[in-house]
Amino acid sequence: MKIRIYEETRKVWNILAERNDPPDLALEMELHKKVLSFFQVGACYYFIFNAVRGELDYMHPGVSEVLGYNADECTITEMMSRIHPEDVPGFLEFEQATVDFFSRLPPEKVLKYKARYDLRLRKANGEYVRILQQATCIQHDETGAVLRTLCVHTDITHLKPTGRPVLSFIGLDGEPSFTNVEIRKTLTPSREVLTKREKEILRLVLASMPSREIATHLNISKLTVDKHRKNMLKKTGIKSAAELVVKAVKEGWV
């Protein structure tokens, strides 16, 4: 079963299959810490995916805390074999849509997007958890073809215990986002609910950072931070910060 899923997914990745191996990439831990600070809405781990080889270059040992497996057990085929059977068709469709999306981007914009979707993975004890996968390109060639991606897996079972998996492409550095993407339909930018500054603050709220620390981090006053937080609640019709966090994760706003 796991080999079949892997072979089907490799067909999707074949757009890169004939390229030479990507050059070595040195990633410092501080980069990981910076990226991970945006995703701490639950227990998480991360890995580096080599799109050319269809293999994992690195798996963070934190996977043992989330799923109960040792990092050295986590090959790409093993990870795919742990997908809930009902989520396998959607996983293949999401991967195809993601490859299509990044293939259409001009080279200068490949690093300005992250793909995110959720699916259920089986833990070592046999239980299933809902994982939010967020992937961003960290290395591409001169044509913009993706060579390596950094993927973060976050346990969001407490935020989304049930429901249909959804796919979104989140624009960074002012690029438009495409949320709750309908597969095989023309992409049109979704209406941006939050401003760029509000998204910055929301990401830090998701990282459990209090308003005073957010103000210091962004070099603005705490009063300004509090004003932005109130505006976000008003614009979204949500009554509390906790509800805002849940809605942001479900809707793919950040």
Rank of each mutant, 00 (worst) to 15 (best):
F169Q: 03
A97S: 12
V41K: 14
K34R: 14
A248I: 04
L204R: 15
K112T: 00
D21N: 06
R203H: 02
Y45R: 08
L111K: 02
D100E: 14
G54Q: 11
R122C: 13
K239N: 13
G174K: 04
F47H: 07
P107A: 13
V41L: 09
E86F: 07
A241T: 12
P176K: 07
E86A: 15
V249R: 01
E78P: 00
G252A: 08
A207H: 12
F169D: 01
N231I: 01
A145I: 11
L119F: 15
A207E: 07
V129E: 09
E198K: 07
A207F: 08
V193F: 07
D226G: 00
I83P: 03
K199L: 05
P107Y: 05
T157Y: 02
K227R: 15
L105N: 06
V181A: 04
A215H: 09
E93W: 06
V146Y: 06
L119N: 08
E251T: 01
S221Q: 09
R10M: 15
L92M: 08
F38N: 15
V52Y: 04
F102H: 08
H140F: 03
R53V: 01
L204A: 11
R212Y: 07
K2D: 12
I48K: 04
A135F: 00
K222L: 01
R122D: 06
G252Y: 09
A248Q: 04
I183D: 03
L27V: 15
E28Q: 09
I214S: 03
L147K: 11
L31D: 10
V110Y: 01
I131V: 15
V181W: 08
R184P: 00
R19V: 00
L202W: 06
L67R: 12
L25V: 09
R104K: 13
I48Q: 07
V254D: 12
K2V: 05
F91C: 07
E142N: 09
R120D: 06
T216S: 14
G252P: 01
I3R: 13
L233M: 11
C137G: 00
D57P: 06
D100C: 08
Y45T: 09
L233K: 13
N231V: 02
G54E: 08
D72W: 14
E65T: 11
N20M: 02
N125E: 11
G54T: 10
M209A: 01
A71D: 10
L31E: 10
V181G: 05
V146R: 12
M80V: 00
E7K: 15
S221W: 05
V181P: 02
